[in-house]
């Protein structure tokens, strides 16, 4: 019997300083920020993870480093998902862009930059995509007050 692909991935892809776990049957890889691009490249090139589902972040205000950046990939050949997570500090929330691997990463990284202020090194265009020019701060960070409005139109008297 051939070895399940998830076991192969777990054996092959955990880099130095990383760890692997399972969540609801899905492989979750914790990787250091500098190893992220390499792992993603192997997923795309060697293991047929051809669909980049999402990149988002998690804000842990009390924790150091403060942010998790979370990636989901899907393989239409193996019909399975893999989650990549990496931690970045508040002072330098920078990860490598996946635009060289997946064109769809472009817009998703822009959204993540809007909402959490994660900087994607190598994404040449991080203009606001859901927010608007001039918006101060990142609204999905926990320290963004929920009633803080930044109206574009002055309110009537």
């Amino acid at each position: 019997m051939t070895e399940p692909i998830i076991d192969i991935l777990q054996r092959e892809l955990v880099p130095a300083g990383g760890e692997a776990s399972r969540s609801h049957g899905m492989l979750v890889l914790m990787v250091p920020p500098d190893a992220l691009l390499g792992v993603a490249r192997r997923l795309a090139a060697e293991f047929a993870f051809d669909l980049f589902l999402d990149v988002t972040a998690v804000d842990w205000p009390q924790r150091t480093p403060r942010f998790d950046v979370v990636y989901h990939f899907y393989s239409t050949r193996h019909r399975m998902r893999v989650r990549l997570k990496t931690c970045v500090p508040e002072a330098e929330p920078v990860v490598d862009s996946l635009v060289p691997l997946y064109g769809s990463a472009h817009f998703m990284e822009r959204e993540c930059h809007d909402m959490y202020g994660i900087v994607f090194r190598g994404n040449a265009d991080l203009r606001p995509i859901l927010l608007y020019e001039g918006f101060q701060g990142h609204p999905l960070r926990k320290d963004y007050r929920k009633d803080h409005e930044q109206p574009l139109v002055p309110y009537r008297g």
Partner: peptide
């Protein structure tokens, strides 16, 4: 809605 995105009633900008 009470958040960064939503306008709290259009009467804030038009009658």
């Amino acid at each position: 809605y009470q958040n960064y995105a939503a306008l709290a009633g259009i009467d804030k900008i038009i009658p």
